[in-house]
């Protein structure tokens, strides 16, 4: 008899389960919007490389020329080449969008965090002030502020847009900070002597950033839209500063003369950019909601 007195018993060996198919990294991500936005942003940043001339050069002989070989997107009523204006104007429009969003985010984070950390009376005061701000029509505020600041420039218009669009983000920041401020690592940092800005920068912002990220992107979008609105109405940047908005402000004359390209080309670029930003923003919001919080 063979020596089989000692047999290993135990868990029955099972074949390893087939490896689950790896999800491709791009699944569920806004690839198309990101790609289009990337092309537009890169084109605006690098436009000096592929556009030789001065975008504001007025070729009066070719005013209101239709799109063709010489002028890809045509020229406007003052004879400026729309193709080069689109890229150079995009620089300014995107700059205003980013700067306006940055200013509004900074104001919202600081005010929201102060309100979240403050004692009840100061919190109530700040939040009522925020609601007061929120209830005044945005456009009215912008016009007032712009009137105070005087002649519009890229900087002043970003400042005005930034200073009028922080309210809803400040409310979100305040709610998040209320939750975070009693967590023990904040208490620990406080008992070690950490100041308000240390705690805000090291502990609070990293923890609530994901939940305001989509609002930041949406603020870029609304800042670009606000600049176009203002310029279109003629209370924004002056005509000689080329932006998508100031290009659109020529449209009333263009409509009368039947030059559709003057209004359509900047319009398409503007709407495409806004759509891409919206798509990115809603992706970020979904991603932030999906994540497990308060763990």
């Amino acid at each position: 008899m063979k020596d089989d007195g000692f047999v290993i018993v135990g868990v029955r060996e099972t074949p390893p389960p087939p490896a689950p198919r790896r999800e491709p990294w791009y699944r569920g991500k806004p690839l198309f919007a990101g790609g289009v936005l990337g092309v537009i942003v890169l084109g605006c940043l690098l436009c000096g490389l592929f556009i030789p001339g001065d975008p504001s050069y007025m070729d009066l002989a070719n005013a209101s020329a239709a799109p063709g070989r010489a002028f890809l997107f045509g020229t406007d009523t003052m004879g400026r080449d729309i193709f080069s204006m689109i890229w150079y104007g995009g620089r300014v429009s995107l700059l205003i969008g980013v700067a306006g969003a940055a200013i509004s985010t900074a104001v919202a984070v600081v005010l929201g965090a102060v309100s979240g950390c403050a004692p009840a009376w100061l919190d109530a005061l700040l939040m009522r002030l925020t609601e007061l701000f929120l209830s005044v029509p945005n456009l009215l505020l912008v016009v007032f502020l712009q009137a105070i600041l005087g002649e519009a420039s890229v900087l002043s218009i970003s400042l005005v847009i930034g200073l009028t669009s922080w309210t809803s983000m400040a409310k979100v920041v305040r709610t998040e900070v209320r939750q975070l401020r009693s967590s023990e690592y904040v208490v620990a940092a406080r008992s070690m002597g950490g100041g308000f800005f240390h705690i805000l920068w090291r502990h609070l912002i990293p923890n609530f950033l994901s939940s305001i990220m989509f609002m930041v992107v949406m603020n870029v979008r609304s800042a670009i839209a606000a600049e176009s609105t203002l310029s279109f109405m003629g209370i924004g940047l002056p005509l000689e500063v080329v932006t998508w908005g100031s290009m659109l402000s020529l449209s009333e004359k263009a409509l009368l003369s039947g030059a559709w390209w003057i209004i359509l080309v900047p319009g398409i670029f503007l709407v495409t950019t806004l759509l891409c930003l919206t798509s990115l923003g809603s992706y970020l919001r979904k991603a932030a909601n999906r994540k497990e919080r308060n763990l």
């Binding site: 023990e184 690592y185 208490v187 008992s191 002597g193 100041g195 090291r202 990293p206 923890n207």
Partner: peptide, 27 residues
């Protein structure tokens, strides 16, 4: 001070070396 629940007394978005050095950075 040392807390009861280390999961909530350490910021989960900071690396261990930053957590330990935090009091020195503050002071």
């Amino acid at each position: 001070l040392i807390f009861q629940d280390s999961a909530s007394s350490l910021n989960q978005r900071m690396r261990v070396c930053d957590i330990i050095a935090e009091p020195m950075r503050i002071q």
